[in-house]
Simulated assay, not measured.
Amino acid sequence: MSSHCHPEYFIEIGYVISAETLSLSTSQINEHPEISGSSIRALYNRKSNSILFADLLYGKTTSLGGRLQSHGYETVPSHIHKYPFKDEKYFYGGYCVQKYGSRCAEHFIDVIQIKLPRTLRIGNKEK
């Protein structure tokens, strides 16, 4: 977990899913080939009989972003902010997430990148 200085002040959750893919419709995301390259591939493989991939990304109660958003933290992706605004910077998952997440066939551990707005990371009395 680390901080960012993007002007939107969202918590950014990276699953190695690009902003472009996140902006697709729910049905397109569920069928998109980038699913197999996601850092939560193993989780989806375990739960695919009971949940859609898009629900893991931004479901209100089924995603990390949805849960954080429900507690008052502006988060992308979530059920409120499914994808970053156009031309907005977004950390979708850096080297460690890409290298060691379950997107690689030999890895079974899911990895998620979390980037906090700097104000949240260094201390914010309201949050």
Rank of each mutant, 00 (worst) to 15 (best):
L120A: 04
K99T: 12
T119C: 14
I114L: 12
A105W: 11
L116D: 09
H107G: 05
K60P: 07
L116Y: 09
Y92A: 15
D55C: 03
G93P: 02
R103D: 15
G94A: 00
R103A: 14
H107F: 11
G93L: 00
K60A: 15
F85V: 12
K115L: 14
I114M: 09
T119G: 12
I80Q: 10
L57F: 00
Y92F: 13
Y73Q: 08
H107A: 04
R118E: 12
I122H: 11
P117E: 03
V97F: 00
F53R: 07
Y73T: 03
L68C: 03
K89H: 12
Q69F: 04
I80H: 08
L52V: 06
G72C: 05
S70R: 08
S70W: 02
F108W: 10
F108G: 12
E88G: 02
I114Y: 00
C104P: 07
A105P: 10
P117N: 02
R67P: 01
L57R: 00
Q98V: 09
K89R: 14
T62W: 01
Y58K: 00
D55V: 01
V111C: 09
E74L: 15
F53H: 01
F91Q: 11
K89V: 07
R118A: 13
Q98G: 15
L57E: 03
G59H: 07
Y73A: 05
V76T: 14
Y95V: 07
K115V: 09
K60C: 06
F108S: 14
G59V: 06
F91L: 13
K115D: 14
N124F: 08
I122V: 14
L52Q: 10
L120K: 00
S102K: 06
G59W: 06
S63I: 00
S102N: 04
E74M: 13
C104V: 13
P77D: 02
S50Y: 09
L52W: 08
Y83T: 09
F108I: 09
K115P: 02
D87G: 07
N49D: 14
E88P: 01
F91H: 13
V97I: 14
R121K: 12
D110Y: 02
L120E: 08
G101V: 06
R103G: 15
K125P: 14
Q69K: 09
R121M: 15
T61H: 13
F91D: 13
Q98L: 12
L116S: 10
T75C: 05
G94E: 03
T61Q: 11
D55K: 04
R67M: 15
N124W: 08
K115S: 12
R118Y: 11
K86V: 09
I122M: 11
G93F: 02
A54P: 00
L56D: 07
